[in-house]
Design a protein around this nucleic acid. Structure first.
Lengths: 341, 341
DNA sequence: AATCCAATTGACAGCGCTAACATTGTTCTT
DNA sequence: AAGAACAATGTTAGCGCTGTCAATTGGATT
């Protein structure tokens, strides 16, 4: 029951030079072995690794990064961790990074461009190998810092505007448009919209615009709106659905700003005894897993968030230094018919 | 419309010494100004800041960390990003860090102790100011590295075992026990359990044990189990509930391993026309927001995940270097009566 | 046998910054 | 008026590692 054992050769910090000394080789040789770089004979490698293991040596990446002027850090600035969408993108990022030794450093902007600027400065101080941001709205200084850094910069979620370097996402305009086309084809004509604050979520607005475009082509418009003043949530979706139905315009389908809101709508209908689809059809956006588990599967659009994170990393690793051409990857979207619309 | 402007004094990398030279002061003076450390006259500060702004100088934290042997990085190793619980802890961590200039570096262990070990090594290479992990199960080397590092180490989610340094969480045993007491007091006697794989989620098992203890005290036992072989999910909860009800043991209440599973149970009942509470009462764990938006609010236990992350950071910042005494913070839990049990 | 080559190892000079210890004036004590 | 105490700045050495350019060895080539 050896409790609180000290490390083999207890000593606060083991350095390269100690290892080198004990293994009777030069520091650079140990360095090469630790990085699997350059030709090393089997005996030397074994001799050195024995010492490394005995001392429990862990290379100091700070020193390494300074010396080589490259870090294996990837800076990530996301708007929020509350909205399930971003943890899923993060999950994709981690999945893409698995097996490499890059480390993501994550910061949260709270949907503020000014906070993003401070964050980007702070992340850039670590000389990251690449930066990942959400969306295309940045302050001028942020954009300038990123442009002149020369490192790869990926802007995620959207592909409608022109990126600094890499864009990975989907066309929210098309997603909105196709949602409209789909619902029209299903025979719906009396459209309602249930949404949340667009100020923080520009992409929801773009989807709305796409939807309106499809409706306009069919000579239709959105007849009733119910928009909460705040971020999206299931509770808000529920309340806003009640609100929509209480209005004097009767609609046969409600399009929601996203699945959180739409699921709230489903809950309202289930609770209030409103027949889903017959009385009110519901259509969301995102394709969250939970939508599939509802008593009636949610009709929505899958937005491939995991993929967005994963592909961003793949693009970055594929070509770690920036060349001339920008690149845009469309991760697409899929209409999920479900049972609610 | 100045497009693609170069930085004021274009030049790939601006260093301290350049700033110092142009401002006609020594490097250390610039360093002190950038770090707000030591006495600096107003004129000097202004003179230097003018140059800093003109050149767009951003201090290189890698060099700074190497020189000062301290970094402002906080290493975070969490099991998963799929389970909503951990992003919420992350959210607490970010909230606690707001306004400081610490940066969290997050890695994912996929519930594997071996992966955690690799991750911890890799994070330690950045000489972080503190480390945050989930749970108490670590490999021996991981524990050793953490113990001898001397930095603050917070183990989150749980407070039942003895921590390396700081523990922040709740007693899952008590949570399970109190859930049982609550349900017994509400008059339920025929208990069923719907759960997921305990191998990855030891805390679910501990809650189960606590529940059994409460039942045993009342001369009761769990009469039927329905356990999915895999992680928790709403879909699994739905399927396992169907499974439970299909068995030949009739139960009047089902306790779930967590809210994801319990919500699946609610969905099954809503879909299959099983009267919630009258025919089958449902009780979860976590207190997810969505439970509150269901047609009938979910009866569950709030586990304060955000708080756990936030308090962990507060403890770390309160006393950044480790002293003798370990500390354990109980963030508690609250029974949420809801309407399903 | 002279030349060339690849494999293996090392010496040296920083990377950009900060800790620790001076060095100046200035103001305050007694 | 001499010393103490403080404010403001500077000098000197690295932090622990890696890029660059040798140096050495033992064949392989011609």
């Amino acid at each position: 029951m050896r409790q609180r054992t000290r490390l083999p050769e207890s000593r606060a910090r083991v350095t390269l030079s100690e290892v080198a000394k004990l293994a009777n080789v030069s520091e650079i040789t140990v360095s090469r072995i630790m990085r699997n770089k350059g030709p090393i004979s089997v005996e030397t490698r074994e001799k050195v690794m024995a010492v490394v293991n005995r001392l429990g040596y862990v290379p100091n990446r700070i020193a390494g990064s300074l010396a080589s002027a490259t870090s294996n850090i990837i800076g990530v600035a996301i708007p929020s961790l509350s909205n399930i969408v971003f943890p899923e993108v993060l999950r994709g990022i981690h999945a893409g990074l698995k097996g490499t030794d890059y480390q993501p450093v994550v910061g949260v902007t709270d949907y503020s461009m000014k906070t993003e600027e401070v964050l980007v400065r702070s992340l850039m101080a670590w000389k990251p190998a690449a930066m990942i941001l959400a969306g295309f709205d940045h302050t001028d200084p942020t954009r300038q810092i990123l442009v002149q850094s020369g490192i790869r910069v990926a802007e995620l979620m959207d592909i409608d505007p022109e990126p600094i370097d890499i864009a990975v996402g989907l066309s929210h305009r098309s997603a909105g448009y196709e949602s409209g086309r789909y619902l029209i084809a299903r025979g719906y004509r009396r459209f309602g919209y249930v949404g949340h604050d667009w100020a923080e979520d520009k992409r929801a607005k773009v989807r709305y615009d796409g939807l309106c475009m499809a409706l306009a082509e069919a000579g239709l418009t959105i007849m009733a709106h119910s928009i909460v003043d705040g971020p999206s949530s299931t509770l808000a979706g529920r309340a806003m659905t009640a609100n929509l139905l209480a209005g004097n315009t009767s609609v046969d389908v409600a399009v929601y700003s996203n699945d959180d809101m739409a699921i709230g709508g489903v809950f309202h209908c289930l609770g209030a005894g409103v027949a889903l689809r017959e009385k009110l059809a519901i259509f969301g956006f995102n394709g969250l897993e939970i939508g599939d588990a509802l008593p009636m599967a949610l009709s929505t659009v899958r937005s491939n968030r995991f993929l967005i994170g994963k592909i961003a990393i793949e693009k970055i690793l594929e070509q770690p230094d920036r060349r001339g051409a920008r690149s845009v990857v469309d991760t697409g979207f899929q209409i999920i018919p479900g049972e609610t619309a």
